Amino acid sequence: TDSAAIFSEQNRADLASEELAQVAVFQEFLPKQLTPEELTAEVKALIAEVGATSMKEMGKVMGVASKRLAGRADGKDISAKVKELLA
């Protein structure tokens, strides 16, 4: 993390290691984030599943995508990918 890097630069290994330990705990319990390729594949599958063919149906796709990909991808990234693939 940025904080750990700053603590390391300031020779505060005690604070840096505490920060990195917290990150390790978060990573263990949070869902694995999708790679850009995985996100593209998931969104393509959702578009096909919903039967969307144009930007007019973005809301329908986003409704499903937001629920299904929650915690695995950022909402802005999902929205951008849906726009890209429906355009």
Rank of each mutant, 00 (worst) to 15 (best):
T1V: 04
T1Y: 00
D2A: 12
D2V: 06
A5T: 10
I6A: 14
F7T: 06
F7H: 10
Q10F: 12
Q10K: 11
R12Y: 07
R12M: 04
A13L: 13
A13F: 14
D14I: 10
D14A: 15
D14V: 05
L15M: 11
L15P: 04
L15T: 05
L15Q: 11
A16W: 05
A16Q: 06
S17A: 15
S17F: 15
S17C: 11
S17Q: 15
E18I: 13
E18A: 15
A21G: 12
A21M: 13
V23F: 03
V23H: 00
A24N: 02
A24G: 01
V25I: 05
F26M: 12
F26N: 10
F29N: 07
L30T: 05
L30Q: 14
P31T: 01
P31A: 00
P31Y: 01
K32M: 01
Q33R: 14
L34M: 04
L34S: 03
T35R: 08
E37Y: 05
E38I: 09
E38T: 12
E38N: 11
L39F: 08
L39T: 06
A41D: 14
E42W: 08
V43H: 06
V43M: 02
V43P: 01
V43N: 01
K44M: 12
A45Y: 05
L46F: 08
L46Y: 08
I47H: 07
I47E: 01
E49W: 01
E49P: 00
E49L: 04
E49I: 01
V50D: 05
V50F: 13
G51Y: 09
G51F: 08
A52I: 09
T53R: 14
S54Q: 13
M55G: 04
K56F: 15
K56Q: 15
E57G: 08
E57H: 14
E57A: 14
E57P: 09
M58I: 10
G59M: 06
G59T: 07
K60S: 01
V61H: 12
V61M: 08
M62E: 04
G63Y: 07
G63I: 02
G63R: 02
V64E: 11
V64T: 13
V64Y: 02
A65V: 04
A65S: 15
A65D: 12
S66Y: 08
S66W: 02
A70V: 00
G71L: 06
G71A: 02
R72T: 05
R72S: 02
A73T: 06
A73P: 07
A73K: 08
D74I: 03
G75P: 03
G75V: 10
G75Y: 03
K76V: 05
K76G: 00
I78H: 07
I78Q: 03
I78W: 03
I78V: 14
S79A: 09
S79T: 11
A80I: 14
A80R: 10
A80H: 09
K81D: 03
K83P: 06
K83S: 07
K83E: 03
E84R: 11
L85P: 11
A87T: 09
A87R: 13
